[in-house]
């Protein structure tokens, strides 16, 4: 796991016109790492991801991704958002949706190239959505849609894959399938995944970042799931105390 950090945050503060959401956040993510991000609702997990993606600008501190600014590195990141930022009833099929991941890899104008279609075919097979290629998004189940979103992110051929609660509202069997797939993908890319279920993800990730305004990381190898849960709970209590 030791190597060049692919993501580095130093003393990052962020607030949406109000009290700070993140304060003094330091984080280094190594190349090839599988990092879980956990914490209470509104604790700043999604905000952390959006800062790394360059969708938000920190109020203070530095963020480097792949040695560059988040905006400059963004095309090498794949992102699966917590809530789809599109309408489910948009007239588009699965293959066209996944092809969107190829935007920004070649010329902006004209049509898709053969290479784009080959990449898309490959990632659709990998995520098991190939049989759905011609289905409309509106006809997919929640689990199928989540796989399509993952396929779209993989079509970017990212060096770092970032997922925000990819398995919220999905049943456990499919959640296990998706995390097994992430484990395989981790052999070739760095993965950061936000989850509300630390007990579940600690079976997969190498390190957990607990985010609740501040950030602390723990190696899952050092401590078992029960201890992490205790740590997590104590942090929540600590922060509730701070908010008084």
């Amino acid at each position: 796991m030791a190597g060049e950090p692919v993501i580095r945050l130093q003393g990052v503060d962020y607030s949406y016109d109000g009290p700070p959401v993140l304060e003094g956040v330091d984080l280094e993510v190594q190349d090839g790492e599988f990092l879980g991000v956990v914490g209470p609702n509104a604790g700043g997990k999604s905000t952390l991801l959006k800062l790394i993606l360059g969708l938000l600008q920190p109020r203070r501190g530095r963020i480097e991704v792949l040695g560059r600014s988040p905006e400059a590195a963004r095309r090498q990141l794949g992102y699966v958002a917590q809530y789809p930022s599109f309408r489910r009833d948009f007239p588009i099929d699965v293959e066209q949706t996944v092809l969107m991941g190829r935007l920004g890899t070649g010329s902006l104008y004209g049509g898709w190239r053969r290479g784009d279609r080959e990449v898309v075919r490959r990632v659709m097979v990998e995520t098991a959505v190939e049989p759905l290629a011609e289905r409309q998004l509106a006809t997919l189940s929640g689990g199928q849609l989540q796989r399509v979103m993952l396929a779209r992110a993989l079509a970017c051929e990212p060096r770092i894959l970032i997922l925000d609660e990819p398995t919220a509202n999905i049943d456990l069997r499919i959640e296990t399938d998706i995390f097994d797939l992430l484990r395989r993908l981790n052999r070739r890319m760095t993965i950061i995944v936000v989850s509300h279920d630390i007990g579940f993800i600690s079976r997969y990730v190498g390190r957990v970042a607990c985010v609740n305004r501040t950030l602390m990381t723990h190696h899952t190898a050092d401590i078992d799931g029960r201890v992490i849960r205790d740590l997590y709970d104590s942090e929540v209590r600590m922060v509730e105390h701070v908010h008084h």
Binding site: L55, R75, P84, I92, Q96, L103, G104, G111
Partner: peptide
Amino acid sequence: RLFLAVSFDEEFARLRGV
């Protein structure tokens, strides 16, 4: 493709450098 991307999912299009 670009109009499709911007109509379908602005945030994703932005992340792809559009």
